[in-house]
Design a protein around this nucleic acid. Structure first.
Lengths: 259, 259
DNA sequence: CGCAAGATTGAAGTACGTCAATTCCAGTGG
DNA sequence: CCACTGGAATTGACGTACTTCAATCTTGCG
């Protein structure tokens, strides 16, 4: 269950057996969620932190006009807001997309880890910095790139993140997201997302059947999207992949080596 | 010099005299910057944290097409990335807008504060969470609101942040930003920013002469922009303003009370 | 006073949005 | 095994908020 989190943190620093045990001990409150069920709502004041174990969730806000911008996706291994408990209340909501498994970790237990285990504390802080970097890159993409590059960028990012969690199968991964959710994410209309996706398919950049997204040529897709993966800070990714020998396919494209 | 930082942190928790002294001791490396001078560039690996003391700076990236999206503004009292030193390298750059005064704080000194002073550590973490919340709200605004609301939102936010730093004079504040920089921020063209600003002025919502921005009717501007200040997490702002008696004008509009 | 940066204006083009059907498809029940 | 159903994907026609290009005007400043 914890493999995605451990894999992700190993991108930053080697985890010892004890670190892993600490993480296991702390994730004993595991809950199941239905699709499209709120995990936490705006204005609530959480006393625990959520760790995604299976499937995807999304952060969102509701605008007065009824629109529902999506602010980020949480995939297995993502820990949501290590320090939310410092805030007065949530300024956004989090919902599941598909049926999800999520661990609830009490704030005291997180605080204990942060103060007692230097390696883990640093790794967790590192992951929050990466979350913020992702947010910045989304801002660039949504605000300054045309529709086709937005979608290409989104697919690149999610593939690399899923890889880092050990959940991609070479160049394809499960994308449990409707086109309507993609337009809430990228600030486009459903119609335009649909047509733009068709274009990407027509150019042979991606293929998708059902929820499965396959990137035919990651190098070309990255180039097309001006995707520079440095913001994901996966600098150790290549070595960690090599060490663990996870990938069957010998793709030339690895995180960190996009043009 | 430290008033903006202290004021800001007091939004979260009361600072003792010793906390203030700690902050003062740590800000002994003060440097002056020219307008539009890079403070730190993408791919650099900083070994210190920057604290804005005077005037504004901006985070930005450079796109292959030459565009220069702005990702955030740093105003006096803003501490940039308390934990950057954990990352391999900067994924964006920071530049001054006008002539700035900035304190450089070594990573060891920040780490010392974080491990030795609980109150300050919590306050600093709180401020990083607020930074992230601001980023999320920008994403909503840039991706999902029309041009006129984007600008209105931007002006609301900067006024409230400047107030929280004690740098607004009632409803007006110095906005050392050109229209071109606003369009790099909000993902619009210069021409459209210009026309939209004129519209806001024509509706009597704002007035600006030179670098001075004045909000004529904050309540109306907030309503127009669907501005909900909860994301700034200034919940104690009202009390702290009352306690310190900073404001001359008796504006009805305070952070936390937007409709 | 004069220069360069910034603000403003006009005209023409386009990427994207909206509305409204229609088709596709996974899951359910018979 | 097939028919049914509701959500999701797709398509077409049309409208518009925004962009681009290219001047011109204004302002801060040495």
């Amino acid at each position: 269950m914890l493999i995605p989190l451990v894999r992700k943190l190993e991108t930053f620093a080697k985890m010892t057996a004890e670190d892993r045990r600490t993480l296991e001990e702390v994730t004993d409150d595991i809950r199941e969620f239905r699709p499209r069920q709120d995990i936490i709502g705006e204005d609530e004041r959480p006393d625990h932190v959520h760790l995604m174990l299976k499937d995807w969730a999304a952060r969102y806000k509701i605008l007065p006009g009824g629109e529902r911008p999506i602010l980020g996706y949480l995939i297995p291994g993502d820990l949501c807001d290590v320090h939310v408990t410092l805030l007065d209340a949530m300024d956004h909501s989090i919902t599941t997309l598909s049926a999800c498994t999520i661990a609830f970790i009490g704030r005291d237990r997180i605080d204990a880890i942060l103060s007692e285990n230097g390696t883990l504390a640093r790794a967790l802080w590192w992951s929050t910095l990466v979350d913020e970097a992702i947010l910045r890159e989304w801002l660039v993409t949504v605000g300054h790139r045309p529709a086709d590059k937005r979608l290409a960028y989104f697919i690149c990012e999610m593939l690399l993140r899923m890889r880092a969690a050990g959940l991609a199968d070479g160049n394809s991964f499960d994308l449990p997201v409707t086109q309507e959710e993609i337009d809430d994410t990228m600030g486009l209309s459903t119609v335009h997302v649909n047509r733009t996706l068709q274009e990407l398919r027509a150019q042979g950049l991606v293929a998708s059947k059902g929820r499965r997204m396959t990137v035919n040529d990651l190098e070309r897709l990255c180039a097309f999207a001006d995707f520079n993966p440095n913001y994901l800070h996966q600098q150790n990714q290549q070595t960690s992949q090599r060490r663990e020998g996870r990938h069957k396919t010998g793709t030339t494209m690895q995180a960190g080596s996009c043009p």
